[in-house]
Each structure stands twice: as C-alpha cells, then as structure tokens.
C-alpha cells in the first residue's frame, strides 16, 4: 500500500507549481492553466483523503466531482473573458490590461 503522505506531497508540489504559474505568467491563458493545475491538486487531495481516511463516506469523491464541474464553468467563462479582452484591446497580456487598476 502506498502511504497517504506520498499523495499529499505530490498534490502539494502540483499546487505550488500551479501557484507559480499563476503568479509569474504574463499571458492570461497561462494563468488559467496554472489555476487548472491548482484545482487538480485539490482534487487529488480530496480523493486521497477519501480513500485513506474514510472510504465508506463518498463525500470526498462527490466534492471532487463538484470541483471538476466548477473548473469547467471557470475555464469557459475565463476563456470567454480572454477572447473579449483580445477583441477590444488586442492583447492577452495581463500587464497591459490595466483598465481597472488603481
């Protein structure tokens, strides 16, 4: 049996890589990809805790499915926003989209 800690460390690494992508990328689509990686890490944690801590209660799996559904909605709206910004400002670089910055 694989120890639970291995899964948690892999998920932590995945989350941190995604966080780096979100913070460091200049392209809005790259940021969205980082967010997807972070959501994947969260899902991995949920499933690992379900399997190891209480396999009789399916709450972990159910919430992983919810997270997948929310991720699908998030990426649809995010890409629509990126396409809209691209149309009106001709860029997908988040440093040039500063209309609402102070």
């Amino acid at each position: 049996m694989i120890p639970l800690v291995w899964y948690l460390i892999v998920a932590a690494a995945l989350f941190c890589i995604g966080l780096y992508g979100v913070l460091a990328r200049r392209n809005a689509i790259g940021i969205l990809m980082g967010v997807e990686l972070m959501l994947n890490a969260v899902n991995l944690n949920l499933v690992a805790f379900w399997r190891y801590v209480c396999p009789t209660n399916v709450a972990g799996l159910v919430f992983a499915v919810f997270v997948i559904a929310v991720a699908a909605a998030e990426v649809a709206v995010g890409l629509a926003l990126i396409v809209a910004i691209y149309r009106s400002r001709d860029t997908v670089n988040v440093e040039e989209v500063d209309l609402m910055r102070w």
Binding site: N43, A72, I82, Y86
Partner: peptide
Amino acid sequence: LEAEFLAALQILIYVGAIAILIIFAVIVT
C-alpha cells in the same frame, strides 16, 4: 486510488473538454 470513475471523468472533462478549449483559445490568440 481506486477511483476509476473519477479517472474517467478526469480524462473526459479535463483532457477532452478543458484542455481542448484552452488549445482553441491559444490558437485564436
């Protein structure tokens, strides 16, 4: 982790839908 259903969902939704959508957005921009 013996969550085969979730693995199928992951392939269907993440690889099949989200990644393809992102690739389309990359191509468009």
